[in-house]
Each structure stands twice: as C-alpha cells, then as structure tokens.
Design a protein around this nucleic acid. Structure first.
Ligand SMILES: [Mn+2]
Ligand SMILES: [Mn+2]
Ligand SMILES: [Mn+2]
Ligand SMILES: [Mn+2]
Lengths: 218, 218
DNA sequence: CAAAAAAGTTAGATAAGTCTAAGTTTTATA
DNA sequence: TATAAAACTTAGACTTATCTAACTTTTTTG
C-alpha cells in the first residue's frame, strides 16, 4: 500500500470527489490541514503513481486506480470503527480517532480477521458503507430527515456529520442508528421538527439536526 | 510518547539491558538492523531526552526514565499480542508481527480497553510478563527445561525464543504453554530428551529445543 | 607493547513530508 | 477590460530517520 500520509491524502481525495469530481488543491489542503505547496508537491507524486489526473494550475481528478486505493483505506478505517464499537465496546463517538490510526496498519490479515469476526458487516457504526476488498461499495440513497413531511415514519439509517460533538448530542437525546422516527409536526418559522422515537416521548429537533440525520421511509 | 522509530529503539535497549547493563552501539545496531552511525546519532538524542547515559566511545546505559518508557512500549506490544491471540483468534506464531505495528498506536484508551477485556492479564501468549501502567513487571524466574534431570515433572511456562519458526515447530509437536512435561530419559551423547506431555505419548526433544523451553517444577 | 581489529564518530548525502516567502497564472469584479 | 483577488507553483529551508565513506579511539593480540 502507501505511507500513512499518502493514505490520508487518498481518503480526503475520495471524500471530496464524491461532492465534485474536480478537486482544488485549496480544498484538499483545507481538508487535510496542510499548506498549498505541500499539497502541490504530493499531488505531483500522486500523478506519477497514476492516482490522479493533474495538469498545472488545474484542479485534480481521482483516477479509477486512485479511487480504488482510497476505497481500500476507507475499508480499513470503517472495519476498524466497527470492530472498536462492536467487539471492544467503544461508543460511536470514540471510534473515529482511534480508527484514524488503525487504518494505517499494513498487515491485511488484521483487517480480514476483523471482517470475519464481525460477520462481514456492510456498514460502520455511523451507517456509512464498508467497501469490499475490490474497493467496491453500495452507495446508499438515504435522505435527510429534513426533507420529509409531517406524518412521515422513517428509520434513522446514517449520519451526514459524524463529528464527536454531534454524536454526543445524539447520545444525550437517545437517538440511535436504526431507531424509528415519526414526524409529528414541523414549525414553519424555523423548520424545527417535533418527533417521537420508537413510540417514546416527543422531542424537538432543530433544522440543523434534522438535516444531519439520514433516514429511509419505513 | 515517542515516534515509532524511537519506540523500537527503546524496546531493543530494554531487551539488551536485561542481558547486560552496558549496551554497545554495535549490538543495538544489529538488533535493530541499522548501521552504526544511525544508532550513534539516535543515541545522542536519547541522551538529550534523559533515556540513556552516554559518553563518547563508551557503551550506553538505559536510565530509569528510559527503562520505564521502554516498559510502556513493551506493555503495548504484549497487550496487543494477547488481544490478537485471545480475542481475535490469531495463533501465537502470528501475533508478533502485527503487534510490532499495533504497539505504535498512540491512543492509550485502545490498550486500556484491551487490558480490561482480557481481564488484566499478567503474561502474553509466549509467557512473557506484561508491564503495568507504571512500567513495572514481575520478572519470572523460570529455568530452561534442559537444566532439569531425568524424572522431573515440570510445567511449560514461557519461551526463551519466540521466533515464528520455533513456534511452528512447537505447534507441530503439540507443545503448548501450560502443558506438563515429564522427563523420561536424557541421552548423554547429545543431551536430547525423551519426554511425555500431559500423560500423552513420548517424544524426543533436541537439546536446542529443551534449552528454549522455560519451565517451572510442578 | 606495537600493530591490527573492533568500535565509535564525523561529515555529507538522501528520502519523505512539511513549511514560508515570493512569483505566476487564472478567475472574478469594478 | 484592466485590475484585484484567488489559486497555484517554485525555490529554498527544516525535521526525522536513514545511509556510505572516511576518520578516530579503544581494545585485542602476536
Ligand atoms: Mn470515521
Ligand atoms: Mn489516518
Ligand atoms: Mn512479540
Ligand atoms: Mn514496532
């Protein structure tokens, strides 16, 4: 595979290319918290490796080869997160930072064994899909809770934002992956939602929160 | 803590200092498979950090501070090996190489959780003691099987050599940690031993093998 | 104990990955 | 469309960790 630094670039490129296939060095630098000349010189190496298309002064594009390399790093990250959560008992708000280190382990057997022990999971603890060993993954088509009308009954399937702060907020509100959410009311003024969770008590979710919850009709 | 490179130096220093408190740069270099000038410059940095005593042209000595740092790396290594073996189902011959990478993970929680899940184990899968969080460990006083006379009944407690080749040999012979070994006969000519394992069939162990098995009287 | 061998040191180079400062090209805007 | 802003590139430096070649000190040995 590649060095830890390169694996981190690959992941960033992958996430950015999903938003738009043309990736500016500025964006990439901001994502990785690196200065532009740093990114510039690495992007040239990636071009040498055939991982990106690159022409001077133009945004880069991830090649199919690069996409696959990236997906395999993301596979390691998400398997690690799942393992940390399911086998080691860490909370979904704790797993990302540890996985950020574990994903750089080179021994493939380590991840294969995790996969096996977990029963070949399709998603990580935040509902994101886990690429297979070929780097392929099923892009799920969930929508934000904020897109649904009053009366909808939906299942909470994944997160749009997996920041620790947001995950801790969801913990406090007992909102967990797989829960059923019923939209009782939507306040026209600020788009805040009154919902009930799995037949539980009602609670209010701000539009900011509803936007970040990815759901599927029941 | 330290970088992965430095953690590997610390471990090597620790193992060498047990054999003799004065550690030559040549030995250290051979252990780590690094050239002497490389080791020389790193040793100067370790001296700056207060991890070794160092004077030009003299062998180095691990300081108490360095010993503790080293023990904490060894703790991570051995906890990882135990986890890989007990929780993930790897064989004792597979765990070392993976632990060589895992030991450099910086998140302390990761190892604390392993420790907890394993029930705070005192030894690793090869019978070596696991240092505690203060860097302290109980030095066990096992002896080589080759030191015992005919008629001895002993328990196989640890390995003097944990190389993959030796571990695979022991697997083939079904010789596992904790087994009882009865010395039936010793051939004067080559010091080979006829033994029986846990009431099982007899087998012959060469002196080379008997030397590498650490045991305790039953 | 002098010469040879072993051990250790210094100097200088290299590779990976990062930075700042300064210059160039492209894009946006007055 | 000229100019300003944003994006990108180049040059040069730094850090960590490594190497080889050449030199120095210490230890061993005939
Ligand atoms: Mn993550
Ligand atoms: Mn990472
Ligand atoms: Mn080991
Ligand atoms: Mn290591």
């Amino acid at each position: 595979m590649a060095t830890a630094a390169k694996e981190n670039y690959l992941k960033a490129l992958y996430h950015l290319h999903l938003k738009s296939p043309e990736i500016s060095l500025t964006e990439l630098g901001q994502t990785l918290d690196l200065r532009m000349p740093t990114v510039n010189s690495m992007v040239k190496k990636f071009h040498e490796s055939g991982w990106v298309e690159y022409e001077k002064y133009k945004p880069v594009k991830l090649t199919e080869k690069g996409r696959k390399m990236a997906a395999l790093v993301i596979r390691k990250h998400r398997l690690a997160e799942m393992f940390l959560s399911q086998v080691m008992g860490f909370g979904w708000e704790e797993v990302h930072d540890i996985a950020e280190e574990l994903e750089h382990i080179k021994k493939e057997d380590f991840f294969d064994r995790m996969d096996e022990l977990l029963g070949f999971p399709g998603i990580d603890p935040h509902g994101s899909p886990i690429p297979n060993k070929d780097g392929d993954l099923v892009r799920s088509s969930y929508e934000s809770l904020s897109n649904f009308p009053v009366g909808s009954q939906v299942i909470f399937k994944a997160l749009k934002d997996s920041s620790t702060e947001f995950l801790l907020f969801l913990n406090k509100r007992s909102i967990r992956l797989g829960a059923q959410i019923n939209i009782i009311d939507i306040e026209a003024f600020d788009k805040s939602m009154s919902i009930s969770l799995d037949e539980g008590d009602a609670q209010i979710l701000s539009h900011a929160v509803a936007m970040r919850l990815l759901v599927e009709p029941k």
